[in-house]
Simulated scan of single mutants.
Amino acid sequence: MKLGKLLFKAGIRIPLLIWALIVIYPIIWMFLGAFKSNGEIFASPWALPKSFSFDNFILAWTEFNIGSSFMNSIFVTVLGTFLCLVFALPTSYAIERLKFKGSKILFNVYLSAMMIPMVLGWIPLFFLLLKFNMIDNLWALSLIYAVTQIPFSIFILTSFMGSIPKEMEESAAMDGMSPYGILFKIITPLVMTGIITVSIMNAVTFWNEYFMALIFLQTDESYTLGVAMDLMNKEAQYTNAWGALFAGLSIAIIPVLLVYAIFQRKIVKGMIEGAVKG
């Protein structure tokens, strides 16, 4: 019996371990390549660097405009995440708690919006932004990011709000608290796990987004990291700046790895709780 359980666990864990190695190894190789000179990369691409030099990081940050693109990505990620919460939190509360006429229809409309590919809206959005002279505008891109994630955010937040006893809100209303006071002083602290989960998932999505940034941004000064890394990749093919490219990729991936490392348990807990409560 014990041997059977051991074989069963090994049959599950060994494939997962192999898959983890397949995923992690290229990332480690990329980080090591960021500390190598071009000569080392071509001579011994799989070996450890002879000396850990930060020259490639400095070159990528300054000469290839990664520093400016990094700050642009932080701006659109933070602003987009904040705007998405501003829009989604009151809407989720209204749909889940106020139960006005048509609230279920509205909720289903938001759920349906999750199924619509964003690629269908890129051309109309481009001409809309062009009409309002908002092409190559990081504020406009942040707003678009926020709007695209509103359906997902509402789906998660309504699940959490549905688990809160209504008696708490009724008691607060009897004490004279306004609906906005109930939302921000009572509901929001109780659904903080859901808010953190939604914020992290949205932030990672905005940080990694490429196609809309490529379409709506047109100058080097406005490019986010995804677009800047694509241009850097094309340029590295002709200049052989592979070390700088690996350094730029490392700079782009480090914030995401840190977020997942710090908030991994909260993300998993929030997704599981949201699914169960929903």
Rank of each mutant, 00 (worst) to 15 (best):
residue 35 F to V: 05
residue 68 S to D: 01
residue 38 N to I: 11
residue 65 N to W: 02
residue 104 K to H: 08
residue 57 F to A: 12
residue 244 A to C: 13
residue 24 I to Y: 15
residue 67 G to Q: 06
residue 98 L to F: 11
residue 137 N to F: 07
residue 260 Y to T: 08
residue 256 V to G: 04
residue 212 M to L: 09
residue 94 A to D: 15
residue 114 M to K: 03
residue 176 G to L: 00
residue 255 P to M: 01
residue 189 P to V: 05
residue 16 L to C: 07
residue 129 L to H: 11
residue 117 P to L: 04
residue 17 L to G: 07
residue 152 F to E: 02
residue 147 V to W: 02
residue 223 Y to E: 11
residue 149 Q to V: 13
residue 185 K to H: 15
residue 28 I to D: 06
residue 246 F to N: 07
residue 241 A to P: 11
residue 255 P to H: 05
residue 168 M to W: 08
residue 149 Q to K: 12
residue 122 W to K: 06
residue 5 K to Y: 14
residue 99 K to D: 14
residue 86 V to D: 00
residue 207 W to A: 05
residue 238 Y to S: 13
residue 160 F to H: 07
residue 56 N to F: 03
residue 196 I to P: 09
residue 257 L to Y: 03
residue 154 I to P: 12
residue 15 P to E: 02
residue 199 S to Y: 02
residue 274 G to P: 02
residue 198 V to T: 07
residue 16 L to H: 09
residue 136 D to V: 06
residue 53 S to V: 04
residue 180 Y to K: 10
residue 212 M to K: 12
residue 24 I to C: 12
residue 260 Y to F: 15
residue 97 R to L: 11
residue 231 L to F: 13
residue 267 I to Y: 04
residue 181 G to A: 03
residue 41 I to H: 00
residue 19 W to Y: 12
residue 247 A to V: 05
residue 141 L to W: 14
residue 3 L to F: 10
residue 270 G to E: 04
residue 137 N to A: 03
residue 32 L to S: 07
residue 157 L to I: 10
residue 183 L to W: 05
residue 50 K to W: 02
residue 197 T to H: 11
residue 70 F to L: 10
residue 106 L to R: 02
residue 7 L to R: 13
residue 55 D to P: 02
residue 110 Y to A: 14
residue 134 M to D: 04
residue 46 W to G: 06
residue 78 V to K: 10
residue 61 W to I: 06
residue 213 A to I: 01
residue 89 L to S: 05
residue 41 I to C: 02
residue 231 L to E: 10
residue 151 P to Y: 06
residue 165 P to E: 02
residue 104 K to V: 12
residue 33 G to Y: 01
residue 112 S to Q: 06
residue 203 A to C: 03
residue 44 S to W: 11
residue 4 G to E: 08
residue 71 M to T: 15
residue 21 L to N: 00
residue 115 M to E: 04
residue 123 I to Q: 08
residue 272 I to T: 13
residue 32 L to F: 15
residue 212 M to H: 09
residue 56 N to E: 11
residue 148 T to Y: 08
residue 93 Y to E: 14
residue 165 P to T: 04
